[in-house]
């Protein structure tokens, strides 16, 4: 008993100071902080779009269709004379929300089986990992298209598909951490004195996995945004009157030779936002320090 408490205190102390070190390192990552700032601004812009946007994104003006960028319409107008800047701002809501949704679905699908596989081991682990391998042997976008085909084209269905595609990585991360932690002597000791499985998960596995999980979430938010944009571009994601950046590019495709600006701005918005998620992820990873990075 005394052994378990002693090492438990060490563990507690270590994780607290590790988190503080992590924060201190992260604050030194200028580009990552910049990316985080951009993402926060973007989220604010999306939330307050009705107040920020210069026009109603759905207001048509058939006298001024497919206009090039001007002072009145910074990003130009679309085929129905709607303001592209306003539409881009409103589309940010859909794009960000969709990415968030997909990552959340991936977490829900991936984390519990990962924990179970890592803690249970043996046959259960084997079965779960076989399923994961099979899932990963599909070319991802084709699988997503097939899932959307079965469920019917809608943004939610598209994000379910993307969530399924992203879940194996979370599953593996959780499984790896759970396996490593389960073998630690203090967990064995805890188990031997009758601590429950859920106590072990809450107390020992989650604190260990939180930081690498955040790295993965940040990167996957970017990946999910790209996937959503691709599916919406194909018409399999956001359906009118809703519009995401990818859907905007998909609609603008038809007018590519007349009004390139219809494609350029939403596309840039995707690229910059995704880059911000990646840079943030890289910054988080670099802040984790060597000891954790090596385990990946």
């Amino acid at each position: 008993m005394s052994d378990a408490t002693a090492s438990e205190f060490e563990q507690l102390g270590a994780s607290v100071s590790a988190r503080r070190r992590f924060l201190r390192r992260f604050m030194r990552q200028r580009t990552a902080l910049f990316a985080l700032g951009f993402l926060v601004l973007l989220a604010l812009g999306a939330v307050f779009a009705p107040w920020v946007a210069p026009y109603d994104p759905l207001a048509q003006n058939l006298d001024r269709v497919l206009e090039a960028p001007s002072l009145a319409h910074w990003f130009g107008t679309d085929e129905l004379g709607r303001d592209v800047l306003s539409r881009t701002l409103f589309a940010a809501r859909i794009s960000l929300l969709a990415a968030f949704q997909a990552v959340l679905i991936a977490l829900v699908i991936g984390v519990p089986p990962g924990l179970i596989a890592g803690l249970a081991g043996g046959r259960t682990d084997n079965l779960i990992m076989r399923l994961t391998d099979a899932l990963m042997s599909f070319p991802p976008l084709i699988l997503a298209v097939a899932i959307v085909a079965a469920l019917g084209p809608s943004l939610t269905n598209a994000m379910i598909a993307v969530g399924i595609l992203l879940s194996p990585t979370f599953l593996r991360l959780m499984r790896g951490t759970a396996m490593a932690v389960a073998q630690e002597t203090y967990v064995e000791a805890a188990r031997s004195i009758g601590c429950t499985q859920s106590w072990i998960i809450m107390r020992h596995i989650l604190p260990n996995v939180v930081s690498p999980l955040f790295v993965q979430i940040s990167v996957f938010a970017g990946v999910a945004m790209l996937a959503e944009a691709g599916l919406s571009f194909l018409g399999l994601g956001a359906q009118p009157p809703d519009s995401s950046w990818g859907a905007m590019v998909g609609r603008g495709f038809r007018y590519i030779s007349h009004s390139p600006s219809l494609i350029v701005f939403p596309g840039l918005a995707i690229a910059v936002t995704v880059l911000a998620f990646y840079v943030l992820g890289d910054g988080l990873r670099d802040s984790l320090g060597r000891e954790i990075r090596r385990e990946e």
Binding site: G222, L226, A229, G230, F233, G246, V249, G250, F253, I256, S257, P260, I263, V264, G267, I270, A271, V272, V274, L275, Y278, V279, D282
Partner: peptide
């Protein structure tokens, strides 16, 4: 490399069509 990863491929394709074809 980071930029290459962030650019959506459909957008890149359209830009290439715009520049090299149109």
């Amino acid at each position: 490399a980071s930029t290459g990863l962030a650019i959506p491929n459909f957008w890149l394709g359209l830009m290439l069509i715009l520049i090299f074809a149109i």
